[in-house]
Design a binder for these strands. Structure first.
Length: 419
RNA sequence: GGCAGGUUGCCCGAGUGGCCAAAGGGAUCUGACUGUAAAUCAGACGGCAACGCCUACGCAGGUUCGAACCCUGCACCUGCCA
């Protein structure tokens, strides 16, 4: 079997690593413990975190022990980001998010077996830490001149950065040190945006304990236009079904750009590389079929939401985006597809117009926007373009006397049931 | 604590008494082409009971026929001096 590093590399998952040869030997020498952290900055993890979880899973499958850290304390501080100072969340909120995220993250790794994953929370070793001990034992190892030179920090010097965020790197470094001492953790993985924080931990361990440990960063995942991956029209793509439905999640993948679908297949699925190459070849031949995107969407949705949800999302998508007549779909199929895609219930006694329905469905933000969409020629009911905003959704417009498939533009769809 | 500069729509950023729902750019949305892709071109882009009305230029007052623009106070940010 190929070395796990070779697999990660072939999948485009390695952006940087400290001393690759040493890391290779360490991974070959036997099972190691490694860690990856997630800060509770929202109630759910998102696609960016998914890449880290899947990378952890790959390492676990290669026999190594994952330590999944949820940042109960780092989440209270917030790491500096270019955009500016973060709004602090209350301790109660963060504690709640920690629980959600812990539950979410743990689903991606095995918690049993020889390389069982362990969930850890950095609040465990920082809650009781005194400021004086922190400054003496940790702070002493951090030269401020080096801290100031870091990109995130220097970019913030003009606009301003609080001492709180400035200190973040000490906390994350402390995490690595603690996990090194407690679990003999010798590798931290993370996104390349975390590289500075990760290597600071490596440095701390070297200074404090004299040990050499490793770091591995995955590249920033981007869309074809170079912007950050994981955002759609409706915002962040979350892993939590309450925030992003399995259907919406599936859709976000099926819309992947041609130029990126191969990369995503490598990074976000466990398919064999040979199978991915075959998909790419097929896609090159007949790009219009979007076979690679379909496979990608099914695979990733299955990993995150399970086979059943993935199948439902797939079915709904093919019903709604299929070339067949919507009117020919059996009512049960149509109803299931629309429920999956998201549907709103309207009362026929209100004589709902297309404008009302567009607003109610959330496809547009206001009636003005709805009228605008219609004027632009971008509003459709049952795949027929609507030209009159006053069109009332009743009678024979409705499929099976109840349903309407509302669409804005090419791909935003919502169901409407009128009763 | 003092002095100076700043706070404009999703973001950046013009505007310093009427012609301002506010230039320009980005983002976003839609159309044409097409494949739920990209590129390109075009249009839209505060709200509503919609040729008009309402809301909006940090917050609260004031001057004026009329304010994003002038005045006063407050908040926050940046810099310099204590």
């Amino acid at each position: 079997m190929a070395h796990v590093l070779d697999d990660l590399d072939a999948r485009g998952l390695i952006a940087h690593s400290t001393d690759p040869d040493a890391l290779r030997s360490a991974l070959s020498a036997g099972p190691i413990a490694f860690y990856v952290g997630f800060d509770p900055t929202a109630p759910s993890l998102h696609i960016g975190n998914l890449l880290q979880l899947l990378t952890a899973r790959r390492l676990q499958l290669a026999g190594h022990k994952p330590l999944l850290l949820v940042g109960g304390s780092t989440g209270l501080v917030g790491d500096p980001k270019e955009a500016g100072e973060r709004i602090m969340n209350t301790k109660e909120t963060v504690a709640e998010w920690v629980e959600h995220i812990r539950a979410q993250a743990s689903a991606f790794v095995d918690l049993d077996g020889p390389s069982a994953a362990t969930m850890v929370n950095n609040l465990d070793w920082t809650a009781g830490l005194s400021t004086i001990d922190f400054l003496r034992d940790i702070g002493k190892h951090f030269p401020v001149n080096r801290m100031l030179a870091r990109d995130v920090v220097s970019s913030r010097l003009d606009a301003g950065i609080s001492y709180t965020e400035f200190s973040y790197v000490l906390l994350q470094s402390l995490d690595y040190l603690e996990l090194h001492r407690r679990y003999d953790c010798v590798l931290q993985t993370g996104g390349s945006d975390q590289w500075g924080n990760i290597t600071a931990g490596v440095e701390l361990i070297r200074r404090a304990d004299g040990d050499k440990v490793h770091a591995l960063a995955t590249p920033l995942i981007t869309k074809a236009d170079g912007t950050k991956f994981g955002k759609t029209e409706s915002g962040t793509v979350w892993l939590g079904a309450e925030l992003t439905s399995p259907y919406a999640f599936y859709q976000s993948w099926i819309q992947a750009e041609d130029s990126k679908v191969g990369e995503y297949l490598r990074q976000f699925t466990f398919l064999d590389l040979s199978e991915i190459e075959a998909l790419e070849a097929e896609h090159l031949e007949k790009p219009g079929l979007r076979a690679a995107q379909r496979r990608l969407a099914t695979e990733v949705t299955t990993i995150v939401h399970g086979a059943e949800e993935a199948a439902a999302a797939e079915l709904a998508s093919s019903a709604l985006f299929g070339r067949g007549e919507l009117a020919d779909l059996p009512e049960a199929t149509l109803a299931a597809a629309l429920r999956e895609a998201g549907a709103v219930d309207l009362k026929s006694s209100d004589k709902p117009t297309v404008v009302d329905a567009l607003v109610a469905s959330g496809l547009v933000d206001s009636k003005s926007a709805a009228r605008r969409a219609i004027a632009d020629g971008g509003a459709y009911v049952n795949n027929e373009r609507v030209s009159d905003p006053e069109t009332v959704l009743t009678g024979d417009i409705l499929l099976h006397g109840t349903w309407a498939v509302l669409r804005k533009g090419k791909r935003a769809i919502s169901g409407v049931s009128v009763s």
